[in-house]
């Protein structure tokens, strides 16, 4: 049968008009601006916060890929973060491997951790992934805490080496910043690339209407599994960054509470918006600093913030411009 292209002829005229910068240019501009951070903040403590924010960005952006675009809920994202951190840290501390080898290993281990729980959970129809991952994160914390010989247990994994470039250790906050900055950029670039392809479209199609997607030849199980594993792999990368920049890791960082927090940050930033996770990461990093003395109030405050944002702006903070534009249009009409 003749192809559609042949039947309808050339269509050079029918491209949609594009507005403004290309997605790559926009991302590059944002990252150039971020490069100025170490030069404008008052001291190293602020740079350490910037590093943390970039790590949080990798976490929140990867969870947004799964949740905002893929329509799946994972309550084990901090657990995958931990798998990456411990994989990379243990390979370094116990087996003497350099952090550069730990970084890809962290992605693979976290991805495998997701594969293991994703295969049975995603086979079932409905939202079993949320419950399965909740249990999985609890189990992972038990491993992190109990495998003392490997993880250091409740006392944490000590003596983790920093990344180094040409024998030059990135052992200060200012030296580590370019690395966190570059890795976060690559992760954001990869997500942007994925979304702008048939794979990204199939991820969104499955999230929007699974039956419709299947009828067009999309294997919804494989699509969901792939995005889940990919998202966990990226959390693993964040884990490797974290453990070698902090040179330390302990179990409570990777528990269910941070997993819930990350979900909240995806929603506050704007689930399914590309730059929303940057706002989420900013808030996730900043608020605990402001509330240093009121740690218990944190979860409540985040919960309250989530309610307010979702009621006023269902598409999150990143959805505010569109919401305001809609309001103005309605006023004029």
């Amino acid at each position: 049968m003749a192809s559609i292209e042949a039947k309808t002829g050339p269509m050079t005229h029918s491209r949609l008009p594009r507005r403004g910068l290309s997605r790559h240019a926009r991302l590059a501009l944002v990252w150039l601006a971020l490069a100025a951070v170490p030069f404008v903040v008052p001291n190293a403590y602020w740079i350490s916060l910037a590093n943390l924010a970039l790590i949080n960005l990798v976490l929140i952006a990867s969870l947004n890929l799964l949740m905002g675009y893929g329509g799946q809920i994972s309550l084990a994202h901090a657990g995958f973060f931990g798998l990456g951190a411990y994989a990379s840290g243990i390979l370094n501390v116990r087996y003497g491997l350099p952090p550069w080898a730990g970084l890809p290993a962290a992605a693979v281990v976290a991805g495998l951790g997701a594969l293991l729980i994703g295969i049975p959970a995603l086979r079932l129809r409905g939202h079993y992934l949320a419950m399965a991952t909740l249990g999985w994160n609890a189990i992972l914390v038990v491993f992190f805490t109990q495998l003392v010989g490997l993880t250091g247990g409740p006392n944490g994994l000590l003596g983790v080496a920093p990344f180094s470039i040409f024998g030059h250790a990135l052992d200060t906050e200012a030296k580590a910043f370019p690395l966190a900055w570059a890795v976060a950029f690559l992760v954001m670039l990869a997500i942007s690339n994925l979304l702008a392809s048939r794979i990204g479209r199939s991820i969104r199609a499955v999230a929007t209407n699974e039956l419709g997607a299947q009828s067009l030849g999309i294997d919804s199980f494989r699509t969901k599994l792939a995005v889940f594993v990919l998202s966990a792999g990226m959390a693993g990368i964040a884990g490797s960054l974290y453990v070698h920049i902090n040179q330390y890791a302990s179990p409570e960082t990777f528990g269910i509470a941070p997993s819930i927090m990350l979900l909240v940050m995806v929603a506050i930033g704007g689930a399914g918006t590309f730059y929303g996770p940057m706002l989420g990461a900013l808030i996730y990093t900043a608020v605990p600093q402001i509330l240093l003395d009121y740690e218990d109030a944190e979860l409540m405050l985040f919960g309250l913030g989530l309610l307010v944002v979702l009621i006023l702006f269902p598409r999150g903070l990143a959805g505010i411009p569109a919401a305001l534009a809609g309001l103005v249009r309605r006023r004029r009409a």
């Binding site: 292209e5 309808t8 002829g9 269509m11 029918s14 491209r15 392809s197 048939r198």
Partner: peptide
């Protein structure tokens, strides 16, 4: 591939 898919889809919409 993206540009080709978009062109084909656009042609269908025109039709």
């Amino acid at each position: 591939e993206e540009r080709a898919m978009e062109a084909t889809a656009m042609a269908l919409l025109e039709r």
